[in-house]
Amino acid sequence: MSSIRLKNIRIFAHHGCLTEEEKIGSDYLVNLKVKADLSKAAQTDALVDTVDYVQLNHIVKTEMAQRSKLLEHVGQRIIDRIFKELSVVSEVRVSVAKVNPPIGGDVAAVSVSMHGQREIPK
């Protein structure tokens, strides 16, 4: 099994429970790792035989653009959509970090890390 990673995808979005967060927005960093069998792509050198990281980035940006109160909700939507659109992906790890969160202290970021694994049909 091989993996593809997208590191520190920078996105401005409007997630959070506070009304101010919805209006003002904040900076986010998303890290993504997907596992898949990439052996065919290694042989063919064809984009159709791998996981297109442009599509992964598009999924992250699209899901981050849809407002949620919780980072957990955004993370799960990213995982679900990757499994829906990319059948070759067997495992997804995603972390969503809010940079400079409004929590009344000097905190660089808060983040949620989530993991999903494709269920194997029985």
Rank of each mutant, 00 (worst) to 15 (best):
N8D: 15
V94K: 01
Q117L: 11
I79S: 05
P102A: 10
R5M: 09
L32G: 04
N8Y: 11
M64E: 12
I78D: 04
P102F: 02
K7C: 07
P102M: 04
T50L: 01
I9V: 13
R93G: 01
V88L: 10
L56D: 11
L18D: 08
R118Y: 14
R93P: 00
L32N: 04
T19M: 13
S113R: 00
L56Y: 12
A42F: 02
Y53L: 05
Q76T: 12
S2V: 00
A65M: 11
R81P: 05
R93N: 09
V34D: 00
R118G: 10
A65D: 14
V112I: 13
K69C: 04
M1H: 14
I9R: 07
E21Q: 12
T62E: 15
L6G: 12
I78G: 05
L6P: 13
E85V: 11
I4E: 07
I9C: 07
D52E: 01
A109W: 01
K35G: 02
P101H: 06
A36V: 01
L6M: 09
I120M: 13
E20D: 14
D49A: 04
I59M: 08
S95Y: 00
H58P: 00
T19L: 15
G105D: 04
H14P: 11
S90C: 09
D37L: 06
G104E: 07
N57S: 15
S95N: 01
D52M: 03
V51N: 05
S95C: 01
V48S: 12
D27Q: 14
C17M: 06
G25T: 13
S68I: 00
D27T: 06
S3P: 00
I9Y: 09
K23Q: 15
G16C: 04
K98F: 00
I120C: 12
S2Q: 08
D52R: 02
G116Q: 01
E85D: 15
D37A: 08
Q43M: 03
Y28L: 07
R77C: 14
I82K: 12
M114G: 02
Y53E: 05
A108T: 10
V34A: 00
D49R: 03
L47M: 13
M114V: 00
G104I: 05
Q66W: 10
L18Q: 12
R10I: 06
T62M: 11
R67Q: 14
L56K: 12
R5P: 05
E119I: 12
I59C: 09
Y53W: 13
Y28E: 05
G25P: 13
I59P: 10
Q66T: 15
L6W: 04
L18R: 13
V51C: 05
G16P: 03
I11P: 04
P121F: 08
A36N: 02
S68T: 12
D37P: 10
Y28F: 15
M64G: 13
V74G: 04
D52G: 03
A65P: 03
K98N: 03
